[in-house]
């Protein structure tokens, strides 16, 4: 039987188009164009590679506003078999605890699975805490910062990129992996698959589907709160204008500050 893979995907605002509500200090996501979080594209590509090699059934799972549907359809256009959008007003403004809880409950609702693949972090808030949080709720092992994944027998073999080297680890399934951005080249969607996806549609679940009380999720279920907002205190700097023709003078100044080593000093 083909293995079951769940890819967790977050739709994020295109980095350049963010607008912050100055009164409520909340992000105005509606204004920004939504894209698939970049490392989630790499996560999906890892899943599709496994599907190419050994066959797999891939479900894309996303929590977000209804507009995230287009990102899920895009994933199905690349080869994912099924799409689930967990969407409900009560899920809004969740911190990583409430987000992990909601996604873990969604995974439970999907039934049996072998592997969950997430991105390492998002380009919007980028905590990187959601993958491991989901793994803890589900009580499964994890491999983080992966650059490649494959399945061997009943195990996930992953290459992990760490500060002081590369680790190759084998962990028992079911397991969760998080994939680093740029670790592969995501394929493009195929028009035929995209049309199929649009025809098939996605499933939409809310807190009732997941049997999650509203006070456990979203802003109410979040232990962290955003307090004040401030502009950090900075040292005032002169921003002295230098033209390209004056670079010689600048270099002299730098030399005077001892920033340019001349042979003479080395000797």
């Amino acid at each position: 039987m083909a293995i079951k893979i769940i890819v967790m995907m977050k739709q994020v605002p295109d980095a350049e188009e963010i607008f912050i509500d100055p009164v409520k200090f909340t992000l105005n996501r509606a204004q920004a164009r939504g894209i698939i979080n970049p490392s989630d594209e790499n996560a999906l590509e890892c899943a599709l590679k496994i599907k190419d090699q050994t066959g797999a059934e891939i479900t894309v799972l996303s929590m977000g506003p209804p507009a995230a549907e287009s990102a899920i359809i895009e994933c199905m256009g690349r080869g994912a078999d099924r799409g689930v959008l967990v969407t409900d007003r009560v899920f809004a403004a969740a911190d990583t605890y409430a987000t992990s809880l909601t996604l873990a409950a969604s995974v439970k609702n999907l039934g049996e699975f072998d592997l969950i693949i997430a991105g390492e972090s998002t380009t919007d808030s980028g905590t990187g805490h959601v993958g491991p949080g989901v793994a803890e709720f589900l009580g499964i092992d994890q491999a983080t910062y992966c650059t490649s994944l494959h399945i061997e027998n009943d195990a996930l073999v992953a290459e992990r990129d760490l500060e002081d080297g590369t680790e190759v680890v084998s962990i028992g399934l079911p397991a969760l992996a998080t994939v680093l951005i740029s670790s592969n080249i995501p394929r493009r969607a195929k028009l035929r698959l995209k049309i199929d996806a649009l025809r098939k549609g996605i499933e939409k679940w809310d807190h009732d589907t997941l049997k999650l009380p509203p006070e456990w999720v979203g802003i109410k279920g979040s232990p962290t709160v955003v307090g004040a907002l401030k502009i950090p205190e900075e040292r005032k700097r002169a921003a002295k204008r230098i033209t390209v023709d004056q670079l010689g003078e600048l270099v002299k100044e730098l030399g005077g500050m001892g920033l340019i080593k001349t042979e003479e000093e080395e000797a």
Binding site: I18, T224, V225, V226, K230
Partner: peptide, 11 residues
């Protein structure tokens, strides 16, 4: 998220 400010996060 923007380009100037920092947020206070409390638990």
């Amino acid at each position: 998220f923007g380009d100037k400010t920092i947020d206070q996060i409390l638990c």
